[in-house]
Amino acid sequence: MAKSTEAAPIYVQRFGDKLVGEMQMDREAIARFNAGDRIKVTLHTGRSPSRLRFYWQMLGKLVAATDCAPNAEALHSVIKLDLGYAMPVRLKNGMTVLVPGSIAFDRMTEEEFGNFLERAIGWIAQNYGVTSEEIMNGGLAA
């Protein structure tokens, strides 16, 4: 499947009733429009890169400490499948397989990711008996 040629999003922050480009590259993108131009925008909060980094660090540390999966990506796939973040795909032979969904920024809102993260942390606690705090603070023996 071909990648979309859609332009990268521009992030802004709200100051009063004004929206201001968050980073220099965002401000430069906005500056390409003429003053007074009518610009179409879609408003929603952006994803939090730090929360996504937390998730991947947590999985990496859990895998390193417990050998529960070959790598963080494999554990991630199992979590998505078990939590229902998957789509059934029917193969030519009639067999149906589940394909894990995506948590990519363009596939999941921050609210959806927050729900996924909360469920994933609960799944880890139920299946491995550890909290995210224990994982992140080194409370697991390697």
Rank of each mutant, 00 (worst) to 15 (best):
R47T: 13
M58P: 00
W56G: 01
E111H: 04
F113I: 01
R119V: 00
V63Q: 08
N137H: 10
L91P: 02
M95I: 13
F113T: 02
F113D: 04
A31Y: 08
I135S: 01
T131Y: 08
A104Q: 12
F116A: 03
G16I: 10
V97C: 08
L59W: 08
G94V: 11
E110S: 07
V78N: 06
L52S: 10
K18R: 14
M1Q: 10
F33C: 07
M1R: 11
E6D: 14
R90H: 09
K92F: 03
E111P: 00
N127M: 12
V12I: 11
R90T: 15
T45E: 15
M136F: 06
P100N: 11
L52E: 06
L83M: 09
E22D: 08
A35E: 13
E110Q: 12
I135W: 02
W56Y: 15
L62P: 00
A142V: 06
Q57I: 05
V78K: 13
F116N: 02
M95A: 14
L19M: 09
S102E: 10
R53E: 10
M25P: 00
R32Q: 14
R107W: 05
T45D: 13
T96R: 13
I135Y: 02
E111A: 13
G60A: 12
D26T: 04
L91A: 07
A64F: 04
K40R: 11
V130H: 01
V20C: 01
A72D: 14
W123N: 06
E6C: 09
A7M: 10
L59T: 02
M87Q: 14
D67H: 09
G139R: 08
D17R: 15
L59Y: 11
V63G: 04
P88Y: 08
A86N: 13
E28D: 14
A142N: 11
V41F: 12
A141K: 12
C68R: 07
K40H: 10
P88C: 12
R32S: 10
E73V: 06
E6T: 15
W123S: 01
R90Q: 15
M95K: 15
E133G: 08
V20K: 06
A120D: 03
W56N: 10
G94S: 11
F113W: 07
F116L: 05
L140Q: 05
T5K: 15
N34Q: 09
F116E: 07
I10P: 03
A125V: 01
A29V: 01
S48T: 12
R51G: 02
L52G: 01
L19K: 03
M1K: 11
V63T: 07
L140W: 05
M1E: 12
W123L: 04
F54E: 09
M108W: 03
E22F: 07
I121W: 00
L62Y: 02
G122K: 06
L81E: 11
L59F: 09
A74P: 00
K40D: 05
K40A: 09
Q24D: 11
D82S: 10
V130N: 02
